[in-house]
Design a protein around this nucleic acid. Structure first.
Length: 288
DNA sequence: TCCCAGGGTCCAC
DNA sequence: GTGGACCATGGG
């Protein structure tokens, strides 16, 4: 079973560059991950994405078309981006197949709440540990993984139990439990965020403990269709300096990046993020 | 030994 | 609103 994709489309880059943390390379070119409670295998052959999943083919098709944003054409995005910022040409040329996934908001929220002062490697581990402890066990072709836990499951776990999982910092456990409570109680509606304007959705998210500007932008870009979100971290700061000659404080950078990239800011952020980690020697870090 | 990881909170000022 | 210290550590 497979789906047609419009090139440029780089499945491997898209799944492994760091926006989603649950994809693992399997045998025979498959990438194995868990998507909305379903264990799924994906691999690309030129302009098609082959898939395997324990749900009816049509259901999987809808699930993947949404997740991979197959309804969107990336070429107009490239064009608009290059018109606004010609210095992005090299990144567009090299990594034009990179796409922004449409992740499940709850999982995305918890994933990025665990990210501050946490290495990516440990962030991946934190998400996997949460799934293993509180998520439903799934199997496909002899592979076992766990679904990402529901808000109710994480709320029921209790803060002390979450803290014992060493997710990063102790306060990450507190943030997770608080968020689980807010979502189950209906005080925080992640579905509503998608319908709000960017600024309003960001303000709303940032009222939650543990969610600052960067984490909010990650959630909005990766799961709430806010293409103008521009998460600023150390990599992006270096990349803006290296590729676009932009410098300043974080708030200045955010304003300048959004002014320059407009609606393509989120897409630009991922090209910059991947670019500085692969092209620039030493990750663009100034040698001392 | 120092710096730094996909930051955020809390506190002065 | 801004700048600094602090925070479950581990690798270069």
């Amino acid at each position: 079973m497979d789906l047609p994709v419009r090139r440029p489309f780089d499945l491997e880059l898209t799944l492994t560059m760091g926006q989603a943390l649950r994809w693992r390379e399997g045998e025979e070119g498959w990438y194995v991950g868990v998507l909305r409670g379903h264990l799924i295998k994906l691999r690309q052959t030129y302009d098609r994405v082959e898939f395997r999943c324990n749900v009816p083919a049509d259901d999987a098709r809808h699930l993947l078309a949404d997740y991979l944003r197959l309804d969107e054409d990336v070429l107009p995005v490239h064009q608009a981006l290059l018109e606004r910022s010609p210095d992005m040409a090299e990144l567009v040329e090299r990594y034009g197949g990179l796409r922004i996934l449409r992740q499940e908001p709850w999982e995305c929220l918890i994933t990025y709440v665990c990210s501050p002062r946490n290495m990516v490697k440990n962030n991946i581990r934190a998400v996997e540990v949460l799934a293993a402890h509180y998520g439903e066990t799934l199997s496909l072709d002899g592979i076992e993984r766990s679904a990402f836990p529901t808000p109710a499951a994480l709320e029921a776990s209790g803060v002390d139990e979450l803290r014992a999982l060493w997710l990063g910092l102790p306060r990450h456990a507190e943030y997770i439990h608080d968020l689980a409570q807010e979502v189950t109680a209906g005080f925080l509606s992640l579905d509503d965020l998608r319908g709000m304007p960017y600024e309003e959705a960001k303000r709303h998210l940032m009222t939650c403990k543990g969610i600052g500007s960067k984490v909010a932008d990650c959630i909005l870009l990766f799961s709430c269709d806010k293409r103008e979100a521009f998460p600023i971290d150390t990599n992006i700061r270096r990349a803006l300096r290296a590729f676009c000659a932009l410098e300043g404080t974080d708030s200045q950078l955010l304003e300048r990046a959004r002014d320059r990239f407009g609606k393509q800011a989120g897409y630009a952020s991922q090209l910059l993020f991947h670019g500085i980690r692969t092209i620039a020697p030493n990750g663009g870090r100034t040698l001392r």
